[in-house]
Write a protein that binds this DNA or RNA. Structure first.
Length: 377
DNA sequence: ACATCCCGCCACATT
DNA sequence: AATGTGGCGGGATGT
């Protein structure tokens, strides 16, 4: 039985739908459009129906490639994909001098105070004063830094295909046991997955497997694979969006069963916004990798997945009417969702949507079943 | 059994 | 002290 089982009853929990990659795509769909120039973390979290923590992950990674840059507490500048080239050049350059200095030993992590990682602002802002060295120990292990090194690894090498563990070794000390650092724990690899997920949703890389070894690997697509720039350039992306359907409508759905059957209704106390968002259509990584994308290059007929005008009206042909309606409703809902911090309202709103959704899913499912077509992967 | 990686606790940084 | 950030890794899911 392939992936999605016909959801017996309302909403089942599916891990895939909550992946960072998908979330990132949604994030992009939300902000990658004209007129956007600033992003509020709270807003993002609410609109996407996820915890704030996840937004940090995305934002930190995207910032490393110049798509975003921090403005202030809770605020980020939206720079768009146009910021990628410059960021990459910068990293490349950085990677260059680094190599010179550390002849032997590996290009492993820290040491060397390369702090000017986040320059961000194009105009001025160059190096921040008082960079000093050896101060912030926390940042040395940050996702952002790891991301930058991840990129450097690729752009300073001709090889565009690297296996996961090679990267892990390279980025996290080790490699033939350089002094100490035995902590190579595979634990850190989780971070690599995080990076890989958002990068692949941006099409900077592609998840694959090494030819023979079958080992998981990443292929660097670089700029060819990503949008040159320009927000909302989405032009073609037809055909991609139809399958969509096997998937739920998306995020939220309290993670696991959470034994407490007692609804949260008035018992919720924490931020755990059950809100569920629209956007059930967006390319599923697997589909993209296995079916659509033949090989690198976006060539044609395939755009950077995640970017859909967000108000994509069209959507399918006849008889999808239903789908479209939901889509519309969801689209309508999100913008007017809780934009003000008010837990009660937020939750209430979320439940309404949940109700709508489960109803819809049920109906749609029924319809599809009799149609006997579940074009999933 | 092994590969992925969600989830959220809680330490550390800023306000 | 309160709130914003974001390491970190347990353990659920996917294959």
């Amino acid at each position: 039985m392939s992936s999605l089982v016909p959801p017996g009853d309302h909403c089942f929990y599916s891990r895939k739908e909550k992946s960072l990659g998908v979330l990132c795509s949604n994030f992009l769909k939300l902000y990658n459009r004209d007129g956007v120039d600033s992003i509020g973390l709270d807003d993002a979290a609410n609109r996407l129906g996820v915890e704030r923590r996840r937004i940090y992950d995305i934002v930190n990674i995207l910032e490393s490639v110049g798509v975003l840059s921090k403005k202030a507490k809770n605020q980020y500048f939206w720079r768009g994909f146009g910021g990628i080239p410059k960021a990459l050049d910068m990293l490349k350059e950085e990677a260059l001098n680094e190599n010179l200095s550390t002849s032997s030993s590996c290009l492993s992590d820290y040491n060397v105070s390369h702090d000017y990682l986040y320059e961000g602002l194009p105009t001025s802002g160059k190096d921040k004063p008082s960079a000093s060295c050896k101060v912030d120990s926390r940042k040395e292990k940050s996702l952002g830094l790891l991301t930058q090194n991840f990129i450097k690894l690729f752009i300073s090498s001709k090889a565009d295909l690297m296996t996961l563990d090679y990267i892990a070794k390279a980025l996290l000390g080790d490699i033939h046991d350089p002094t100490a650092m035995r902590n190579n724990s595979a634990a850190k690899v989780r971070r690599l997955y995080d990076i890989a997920n958002v990068f692949s949703s941006i099409n900077l890389i592609e998840k694959t497997h090494h030819p023979e070894s079958r080992k998981p690997a990443f292929r660097w697509l670089g700029l060819e694979g990503s949008p040159k720039d320009g927000p909302v350039t989405a032009l073609k992306f037809n055909e991609i969006k139809k399958r969509v359907f096997g998937t739920e409508i998306t995020n939220s759905l309290p993670k696991k069963y959470k034994k407490e059957s007692s609804l949260d209704w008035n018992s919720n106390k924490k931020a755990d916004t059950p809100v569920l968002m629209r956007c059930n259509n967006l390319i599923d990584e697997h589909d993209r990798n296995s079916l659509l994308q033949p090989r690198k290059h976006t060539s044609n007929g395939f755009v950077f997945g995640p970017f859909t005008p967000a108000s994509v009206a069209d959507l399918g042909h006849s008889e999808n009417k239903n789908v479209r309606q939901v889509q519309d409703l969801e689209d309508l809902a999100s913008p007017y969702g809780p934009r003000y911090r008010n837990q009660a309202l937020t939750d209430l709103f979320g439940h309404y949507r949940a109700a709508w959704k489960s109803w819809y899913v049920e109906a749609a499912e029924k319809k599809h079943i009799q149609k006997g077509s579940i074009l999933n992967s």
